[in-house]
């Protein structure tokens, strides 16, 4: 069952509100960095280190803002990381409860198939490259659709409007060029 835009919009708004009411605004893309840090630190334990002043890192990005990210890497059981894991679990339960995902959709979405055919390799490559550009962009911007666009604009934060302007300025022409069928 898909929600109508009215009930879906109100529910999504309530979730964003509850997050600010009870803890802090929702954001996701930082957790890609934290997960990278966890993997990297597992291979090379010198990446994140404990000093007298607190947790820091040999990587300038993990060490910035007084080692905020380094600290999260050292302790993955923190609010933001657990939030993202729970988000995935919630989605999995929701999909299961509505009868699961169509078999054809598991490989690629219908819109992609209508425009670019059945080749899975092509779709996977596009998704991989898209993922690279999305996360590089999100980290450069300091947030993503959740943190900047939704949480940011909800708080009337100027950075949120700037981000949304950039995102749609690129996304709309790109989609209009790519998806001419279906």
């Amino acid at each position: 069952m898909t929600l109508s835009w009215k009930s879906g919009g109100v529910l999504l708004g309530v979730v964003f509100f509850l997050a600010v009411l009870l803890v802090k605004p929702i954001g996701v893309s930082t957790q890609f960095v934290i997960f990278d840090g966890i993997l990297w630190n597992a291979v090379d334990s010198a990446v994140v280190t404990q000093t007298a002043e607190g947790v820091t890192s040999s990587n300038a990005y993990l060490a910035k803002s007084d080692g905020k990210y380094a600290k999260a890497v050292a302790n993955p059981l923190n609010y933001s990381f657990v939030f993202v894991i729970a988000m995935m679990l919630g989605a999995a339960v929701s999909v299961w409860a509505r009868g699961g995902l169509d078999r054809a959709e598991r490989t690629m979405p219908a819109l992609w198939r209508a425009n670019f055919g059945d080749g899975a390799g092509k779709r996977y490559l596009a998704a991989f490259i898209g993922g690279f550009v999305v996360l590089y962009g999100a980290r450069l911007a300091g947030g993503c659709t959740s943190g900047h666009m939704m949480s940011g604009m909800m708080q009337t934060s100027i950075s949120g409007y700037i981000f949304a302007l950039g995102a749609f300025a690129a996304a709309i022409p790109t989609a209009m060029m790519l998806y001419k069928e279906g």
Binding site: V134, Y136, A138, A141, G142, I162, F163, L165, A169
Partner: peptide, 24 residues
């Protein structure tokens, strides 16, 4: 960088159909 990053995210969002949260 917020604007430039937004442009990059937007382009990738259109190609992949996912943003960081919805991809997960």
């Amino acid at each position: 960088g917020v604007f430039i990053g937004g442009l990059l995210l937007g382009a990738g969002w259109a190609v992949a159909g996912f943003c960081p949260g919805t991809g997960l």
